[in-house]
Simulated assay, not measured.
Amino acid sequence: MTLKPFPQQTVLITGASRGIGAAIAERFAREGMNIVVHYRQSHEEANQVARRCLAYGANVITVTADLRSREQLIRMREKLEKHGMLPEILVNNAGIAHYGLFSDVTESEWDDVMNVNLKGTFLCTQVFMEEMVRLKYGRIINVSSVWGISGASCEVVYSTAKGGINALTKALAKELAPSGITVNAVAPGVVHTDMMAQFNEEEKAAIKNEIPAGRFGEPDEIASLVYFLALPESGYISGQVISPNGGWIT
C-alpha cells in the first residue's frame, strides 16, 4: 500500500484538550495535517483546540474515549476508520498526576494513576498499531516525564507510571522496528501547564532555581520535539527517551 505524503498523514493526540496535548495538536495542524483531538471529559476545551487547528487549514475531528476501556477505544477506532482518519502517528499524551507522601497513597489512587498513564498507553497503542503494522510504517510517541527517569519524592506513583512508559517504549521499539514503526518517549521537565497548579509560588521559585536554564519549559517546545520525532526522516531514531528539561536532569 502506498504511504501518504507526510502532510497528508493523520496524527492522533490523546489528552489534547489542554496543555502539552493541545500544543502538539496545533503544531501538526500548522502543517495542514489530519488532526484527531482526543479528550475524555473536556468537551468544550477540545472543541476550542479543534477550532484553532482548523484555522491553520488542518482537517480536524474530535473524539472522546476513556483510555482505560478497550471497548471505548475500539469504538473510537471504528469512528476514525469510517472517516478515513486512522493514524499513522500516535501521540500517547493523556495522563494524570498525583502528589503526596507514599505512605498516604490509597490503593484507589494507585490504580487511577496506573490505569490512565500506563494502561491507557498500553491499550491505545495496541488498538492503533495494527494499521501501522499493515502499512509497514508508523510513529508512536509517548509523553512521559523527567520523573520517570529520576524519580521524585512525594510523586512516587506518578514516577512509577512514567518509568513504566519509558520501559514500554524501549521494549516495544525493538518489537516493532522490523515493521518500520518507531517508538520513542518525550520526558519533559517542568513545563507551564495545569499540573503546576499543585505548587505554590515559593515552591515554583525553588524548583526554577535548580534548573540551569533558569526557567520552566513551554508546551510549544515539547510539541516541537514530538513533531521532529514524527517526521519521516526521523526513522532511525527509536527506543529513545528524550528529556527536554533545561539541563536539570542529565
Rank of each mutant, 00 (worst) to 15 (best):
203 E>G: 02
9 Q>Y: 04
37 V>N: 06
9 Q>H: 06
25 A>P: 14
81 E>V: 02
240 Q>H: 14
199 F>G: 01
214 G>L: 08
132 M>L: 10
240 Q>K: 15
118 L>R: 12
172 L>N: 02
59 N>H: 14
51 R>L: 12
85 M>A: 06
100 G>N: 11
12 L>N: 03
9 Q>S: 04
232 P>L: 05
183 V>N: 09
193 T>A: 05
153 S>W: 13
2 T>R: 14
19 G>M: 07
134 R>P: 05
215 R>V: 01
238 S>T: 15
186 V>C: 04
157 V>R: 13
80 L>I: 00
141 I>Q: 03
65 A>R: 07
20 I>V: 08
172 L>R: 02
157 V>E: 10
138 G>T: 04
25 A>I: 00
100 G>T: 00
79 K>S: 13
233 E>P: 05
72 Q>R: 10
216 F>E: 07
19 G>V: 01
196 M>C: 06
102 F>W: 12
149 I>V: 14
2 T>N: 13
195 M>F: 13
175 E>R: 10
131 E>C: 05
204 K>S: 02
90 L>M: 10
106 T>D: 12
155 E>V: 00
220 D>K: 08
148 G>D: 10
68 R>H: 10
125 T>A: 10
90 L>T: 00
34 N>I: 00
31 E>K: 11
37 V>H: 07
28 F>H: 04
8 Q>F: 08
40 R>W: 12
57 G>M: 12
65 A>Q: 06
